[in-house]
Design a protein around this nucleic acid. Structure first.
Lengths: 246, 246
DNA sequence: CGCAGTTTTGATGGACCTCAAAGACCGTGG
DNA sequence: CCACGGTCTTTGAGGTCCATCAAAACTGCG
């Protein structure tokens, strides 16, 4: 195990206090959680869980980015989720991890041992309610991603990914997405390929293509500027954006 | 609306009593549910919900099969879920349907008006607990399907779909999947294509290919015989099956 | 500078899509 | 009974998008 234990912090000052699985908890419930929680950190590139691992804890991502992915024996890999601050790892009632979890940047987790957490869930409905809500949202996102994987062209896939990252970035900063947005791609070309069901070469080519038509601009390899958000949206193949952010 | 109202039935004799969202309910809770439930039926081919529709109810599939899918303006369609008996439609706290739901065979739903159901959820934890469990399972399945869509070849996709249908069929009949399994494909070639992110021609060709190598046999267009389950599994590209059914 | 990892670019081939037509199946009506 | 149309399915021919293989450019670092 690569995790490091660090000092306990106060939940009330936690950056994900209002979005994570604990967001609905009352002060007394929070106190109970505080007693069973502990932090762990992982460096960029480190594995957090391997598929099949025994899971002794569930956790919330506090800071950093991790990927959830699935590999075939011959090396083909499909990313099935991107874990951002406030996202939840693990599930009550499941012994073994169904997917690989890898830290993309440095990651801090707020962990709870599984058994005490499961017990607490039976007593405090607020946790289960919030977890249900989060899981339903994740399910909708997963299903939307299925359209990207199954039916979109390489170019539409890239535009969809850039748009998703742009929106997540603005939602984390609590700004509306607007023209002239600027943000970093947190993923390597290979990770993008694994997310999109493409090869890294195709990812690179399509990013170049979007750059050449002016839909995006690049500073360095990773920093993106979107001069016209509607132009990017029209490249995704989706019908007009409903104005949603979250 | 195409639904027909039919007579109220006794929950204790319901075929999905032990698997649906109500499976954890105590007799008194079941009685409350019985008071707010009503049945609806749809003929094969009929739409149940369109994406964007206002949802006045949530429901369990009692009998029949429905598809959950997403369409792009230009007609490209991706199926994002197959709804079988005991599966749940809709979600508490959401006004509008995010996907299209279409009856593939004749379908009977057990419906609950959304508001009373939401209220009941706050009072009876058993419903929320079961719904969370079902949603987490659906999320895992959706993520597994992402690997199929993103990384598998046409042949592997077909084999994966046939295997899933074979397993679901044996789980509904409560038999272990074995050699010499025999079952019907409930979907048209086009619906399979929409599930797999392929064209219907490619689906047809790959089914013919699996037939020619003897991995499957066909009686008519829809009835399938699997003489050697391991042979089918090895065509899916997955590593060896863990022996799971459900 | 030299090396390893990442990204870009090029050339080629193949898996799958597109367009097209014909065959199989089924209910309807003459 | 068989002809007829509609739907679903199969099969064929040709084209395209993306994967594969290969190499060069870029980046950061010891």
């Amino acid at each position: 195990m690569n995790g490091l234990h660090i000092d306990v912090k106060d939940c009330s000052q936690c950056p994900i206090r209002h979005r994570a699985v604990c967001s609905r908890c009352e002060p007394d419930e929070l106190e109970t959680l505080e007693n069973i929680k502990y932090y762990r950190t992982y460096e960029a590139g480190q594995p957090i869980l391997w598929s099949g691992d025994h899971m002794e804890f569930v956790a919330s991502v506090v800071t950093g980015i991790a990927t959830l992915s699935q590999a075939m024996e011959d090396g083909r890999t499909q990313m099935v989720g991107l874990l951002l601050p406030s996202d939840f790892i693990g599930r009550p009632g499941r012994e073994r991890a169904p997917f690989d979890v890898v830290a993309v940047s440095d990651v801090t987790l707020c962990c709870f041992r599984r058994r005490p957490f499961e017990e607490m869930m039976t007593q405090t409905p607020h946790i289960g309610q919030r977890l249900l809500e989060m899981t339903l949202d994740e399910l909708d996102s997963a299903r939307e991603w299925m359209l990207v994987l199954g039916r979109k062209t390489a170019r539409e896939k890239i535009a969809s990914l850039v748009l998703i990252i742009a929106r997540r970035d603005s939602s984390l900063r609590r700004k509306l997405p607007a023209d002239g947005m600027t943000f970093d791609l947190p993923l390597t070309r290979e990770a993008m390929a694994d997310y999109l069901g493409l090869t890294l070469e195709t990812v690179s080519r399509q990013i170049s293509a979007l750059r050449k038509t002016g839909t995006i601009r690049l500073e360095g390899k990773r920093h993106v500027i979107v001069p016209d958000l509607d132009a990017l949206i029209s490249e995704t193949g989706d019908d007009y954006d409903g104005g949603m952010i979250a």
